[in-house]
Design a protein around this nucleic acid. Structure first.
Length: 485
RNA sequence: GUCCCCAUCGUCUAGUGGCCUAGGACACCGGGUUCUCAUCCCGGCAACAUGGGUUCGACUCCCAUUGGGGAUGCCA
């Protein structure tokens, strides 16, 4: 048996953003090709002129690039099967549609565009009524000569049933009588997805058609098209849908109302591309082991169709967050500092110069970069707080004891010539050692005074250092004032 | 309405007739370490939708029911 090289494609339409469901489809198509030493092709499906969005194709390139999914053929990198943009293939579709008409598998239709069916009351069965299905050649010629607008419809064979094989769902059988004469070529001359995907997948030598399971019910129609042309039917790989859960707990196809659903939004929300890819790889696919953290090259090696799941998966932001945290912790300190800085905003004063240390404190404490502003807010501005905060049983501290400690340390800090972390740290620890004081209590008092919070990223000394000498002294005096001692 | 698909902890999943008193992860709840918190470590809670078969034996096979999702566009 001669095995052909695996060729998969990702065929997004340029809508201006990359839905994670689409990204996952791209990922699986990519992994399938890579895992079998095949080729991964990018094709732009821009046949809907009404939905055209400026710059949307660039978004696709950018997303694939940052996600690390490199394509071997496509509009930007070329290839032997181009053009890879459907709007540049109009003539190809037209010729093929006419060929189908000649073969009796399609026909001209001059009916008016059907208004969206009023679906209230009893449900209508929908579908085209077949009015033009059996027009005589003379009638067609006359209408064409009169310049009447037309579409070309597929002449569906409604006898019997169609059974096809899918790599994840197995054998699926559908009665042909439920199929309708779908439009192949629109009145503007553009093909519909239903037609273009068949023509292109064949012409581009696609061996595995990877797409969402919403296409399962229309697959028999595509098979009739393949047969009418005498083409080989590709292997189908239908993917389970990605679902989202709304506030009421209802589950439906993941969409904007569920939160950030595009790759770009997720990145803006402070997620790392590698974490996003890792997470969605596991949404509907399993390596069949207990491992969950994988790099893209590892996935390329491990991916198999048999790991694909049939049931829809709910997108879980909590788990994504956890995974993102794992990726962040794996980042070298310098890299984390560099990537995290933009999320702190521009108005951070002298923290900018001390960012390496701030980043170090943040590193194990956040799961997405988005959490940074609120985490560091207390460093920029002392929160309002009450003297009650000094009361803590475990640290054996109360406002009176805190006042004593603060009065003890204030002059020491004032006298410190250089305000750097190491000096500050040894000053405090030496003093504690010398006086035999309770370290927890001292640190508690200092930290509350320095931060105005009971829970902070970093300890007392780090905070005192970060806010700077002047501000640190001001905060301590303010604390004494607050305690009223 | 009709058609198609799906069904293991709240969520993502492992499990392909006996290895299952069902494993892992997230979330959640405890405990330990830590100058707070987080990290880290240890522990806990929690599921085979229901009813029929088939079989010596069903989470695993078949059927029905129920539940969920999808399709039904000159969108893709």
């Amino acid at each position: 048996m001669i095995s052909k090289t695996t060729r998969t494609r990702f065929a997004p339409s340029p809508t201006g953003f990359m839905h994670v469901g689409n990204l996952r489809t791209a990922l699986y198509a990519y992994l399938l090709a890579r895992s079998q030493g095949g080729r991964f092709i990018l094709r732009i499906e821009d046949t809907d002129q009404a939905r055209y969005v400026d710059g949307a194709v660039q978004v696709i390139y950018d997303t694939l690039k940052t996600a690390g999914l490199s394509h071997d053929e496509g509009p930007d990198v070329g290839g032997d099967f181009g053009p890879y943009i459907q709007s540049e293939r109009r003539e190809i579709y037209r010729e093929h549609a006419l060929e189908l008409v000649r073969r009796g598998a399609a026909y001209y239709c001059f009916c008016e565009k059907q208004e969206p069916a009023e679906n209230d009351g009893e449900n209508v069965s929908g579908g085209y009524d077949g009015h033009c299905r059996n027009l005589s050649p003379a009638e067609v010629d006359a209408a064409l000569a009169a310049g009447k607008p037309y579409v070309i419809r597929q002449k569906i064979d409604r006898e019997g049933s169609t059974t096809f094989h899918d790599a994840v769902f197995g054998e699926i059988t559908i009665e042909n009588k439920v199929l309708d004469d779908q439009i192949l070529l629109k009145s503007d001359g553009m093909p519909t997805y239903n037609f273009a995907n068949v023509v292109d997948d064949h012409l581009m030598g696609i061996t595995h058609v990877v797409r969402g399971s919403e296409y399962l019910p229309s697959t028999p129609k595509y098979n009739q098209l393949y047969r009418a042309f005498g083409w080989e039917i590709p292997e189908y790989v239908h993917l389970p849908l990605i679902m989202g859960r709304n506030a009421d707990g209802e589950i439906a196809k993941l969409s904007k109302r569920h939160g950030s659903v595009s790759f770009e939004n997720l990145v803006q929300d402070g997620f790392l591309p590698a974490a996003i890819i890792n997470y969605i790889a596991l949404l509907g696919w399993s390596p069949k082991s207990d491992r969950e953290l994988f790099t893209l090259p590892e996935l390329e090696e491990l991916f198999t169709l048999s790991g694909l799941n049939k049931s829809p998966a709910v997108f879980d932001y909590d788990k994504l967050r956890w995974m993102n945290g794992e990726y962040m912790k794996q980042l070298p300190a310098g890299e984390f500092a560099r990537l995290s800085r933009p999320f702190a905003g521009t108005e951070i004063g002298e923290l900018d110069a001390k960012w390496a240390m701030v980043a170090e404190l943040l590193h194990s404490r956040i799961e997405t970069f988005r959490e940074i502003p609120e985490k560091i807010a207390f460093l920029l501005k002392l929160p309002e707080y009450s003297a009650e905060l000094f009361l803590n049983k475990k640290s054996k501290c109360d406002p009176a004891a805190a006042a004593e400690i603060l009065r003890e340390y204030l002059p020491l800090f004032e006298a410190l010539p250089t305000w750097n972390y190491d000096e500050l740290n040894s000053l405090v620890s030496d003093r504690i050692a010398a006086t035999g004081a309770n370290m927890r209590r001292v640190m508690w008092a200092l930290r509350i005074a320095a931060s105005g919070l009971t829970v902070t990223p970093g300890g007392a000394v780090e905070i005192l250092y970060l806010v700077g000498k002047e501000e640190a002294l001001r905060r301590i005096r303010k604390a004494l004032e607050l305690i009223g001692a």
